[in-house]
Nucleic acid binder design. Structure first.
Lengths: 324, 324
DNA sequence: CTGAAAGCGCTTACAG
DNA sequence: CTGAAAGCGCTTACAG
């Protein structure tokens, strides 16, 4: 049977109140009493029921994490950053995905109302910002990772998309490329617009193909451009996956990378290192973004005010052979 | 303020008992009463507190998941399988890692005692089997994914490591390779021994280099063998990461893949598709393993007996250019 | 078909 | 320094 606070109190010959005080390290307990209680706790192997503590205190000491998918290439790093931070603070981490559309969202909202967690770290699933804003208004502490340029009304952690785009362009320009093709991500993403503008601040962006962050999208975009006879000496893809697609299309068309055409991606996922040629890319500090978001949420839960304007973490250009 | 069952009862003019019955779909409630209560619930937006329900019922309707790391290449798929299954059953998923050794384990055990979750899906972190066995003996329902050949005393989901090794060997043999080099994983892993034996049941394994499941390990192993002047016409690496290392070493030494030497890996992680040449590999049904494990745990929690002997899911040989 | 009451395992004023 | 009692928000015999 489960050992309860009542068992400890009985065995130690004190009240439950006193046991509670000892467990929670409150002052005002006689040293020898506290010692005796601790002995009994150790002997019985007593651990307070998290459910009961949560109910009595009105908080669950648990953080929720909502993500669109767990299989995206950089999600593992991000999640590890969040989990490490949350665990170090002795909080639990409740994980949710929105894989199954509206149904998932409904279920998730239920968990919120059920007070299953005290606060939420979220990588925004598509079209849920309104929903999240409502939850935030209703009092749920939220920190958003990667706002996609949507600039929400609550704290968020973002990366330097504008500057990242600019750094890609500078690198291409400095290595003598002047006619880039830009393969974008979904155009309604703010991060896509920012990467675009940053890039455009350095290099002309006459040639633009609209991709969708998939390998296939990157491949098709480049295939079409090649077929159209357009001339370009480099490709800036808005993420690594579509850069991989671009690489495939160039390879299939007999163009040499980087000799004929240089390629730069964005993200620095594991595949970037392993593909041939290895991909030059703008690295996002994914793990650090997870850590930072978790830390912000925890300090908010701890009562410290957290700024509403986004916390910005820097990207870093990683130079590999696809654009030396 | 939070809406409680008392608020609903008051507004509907019934007792909390009746509200509880309606919420939980018990029979023996007058149709019109039930209707009225449901109206009030909808109007007030009442959702039962999961903490209070858990305390009263003695279960948390939450499943724990313990993994060694979230950044392993196949972990995302596995986790997605677990999360989807758990969410579909209206359970929560509490995530733990053992990144920080003993400290993590201690913390984790605390959560177990605190009854934060009803059962556990676990990918075994190194050297925790004894610990897990103890928890299982103490009454915690556990399902292990990938037993590493340790054959624990509780339910588990494994893949056909022996047959996977054999299928790799058959494929190499059928394409005319007769002198393979086997690059193993850590030798104390049961799965490594099984892959070894399965492979050896088809092809002679005169040449064995002991790797450690890392890219560097695979590279060093092949470099040493090449330096020793040993002759081999193929490499079977016990996982894809070390196959990537092997590929690098072969490439650096000027050996052509697959013309001179064919390479087969194990796992089928994303990089396998993207590396040059694309890697022939023994695919593990990672996502399905996650789903299966979660389903087993849930049915155990639901009261259905679950077999103690491992549930075995089949591997599949994926043929790509590194060993056509 | 319905409700009063006890109980789940804690915390927290309050009183001494 | 310590404890009795109320309360957190539910569920569940039990009685009617």
């Amino acid at each position: 049977m489960r050992v309860t606070i009542a068992d400890v109190a009985r065995a130690a010959g004190v009240s439950k109140t006193t046991v509670s005080r000892v467990v929670n390290g409150k002052a005002d307990v006689d040293r020898s009493t506290a010692y005796r209680v601790r002995e009994v706790i150790a002997g019985l192997g007593y651990v307070p029921s998290s459910g009961a503590v949560g109910l009595a205190r009105g908080s669950s000491r648990t953080v929720g994490m909502l993500v669109p998918s767990l299989t995206w290439p950089w999600m593992g790093e991000l999640l590890q950053g969040v989990v490490d931070t949350v665990e170090a603070a002795d909080y639990g981490l409740l994980l949710f995905t929105c894989n199954r559309g509206a149904e998932s969202v409904r279920r998730f909202t239920g968990q919120v109302s059920a007070r299953a967690f005290d606060g939420l770290v979220v990588v925004e699933p598509e079209n849920t910002l309104g929903h999240l804003t409502a939850l935030h208004r209703a009092g749920l502490p939220i920190v958003l990772i990667d706002d996609r340029g949507h600039h929400p009304a609550f704290p968020s952690v973002v990366t330097t998309n504008y500057e990242g785009g600019a750094s890609a362009a500078r690198h291409l320009r400095d290595s003598g490329r002047t006619r880039p093709l830009v393969v974008t991500g979904p155009q309604d993403f703010g991060c896509v617009r920012d990467r675009m503008r940053g890039f455009g601040s350095v290099l002309p962006t006459g040639l633009v193909a609209h991709g969708d962050f998939t390998e296939r999208g990157g491949r098709l975009a480049v295939e079409q451009l090649l077929a159209s006879g357009a001339e370009f000496d480099s490709v800036f893809a808005h993420n690594d996956i579509s850069a991989v697609g671009a690489l495939r299309a160039l390879h299939a068309a007999g163009r040499r990378v980087p000799d004929d055409i240089a390629v730069v991606g964005f993200d620095d996922i594991p595949v970037a290192r392993h593909i041939e040629p290895p991909l030059t890319t703008v690295r996002q500090p994914t793990r650090q973004m997870g850590e930072t978001a978790a830390r912000m949420l925890l300090s908010h839960l701890g009562g410290t005010a957290v700024p509403d304007e986004p916390v910005v973490l820097p990207t870093e250009l990683i130079v590999r052979r696809s654009a030396p």
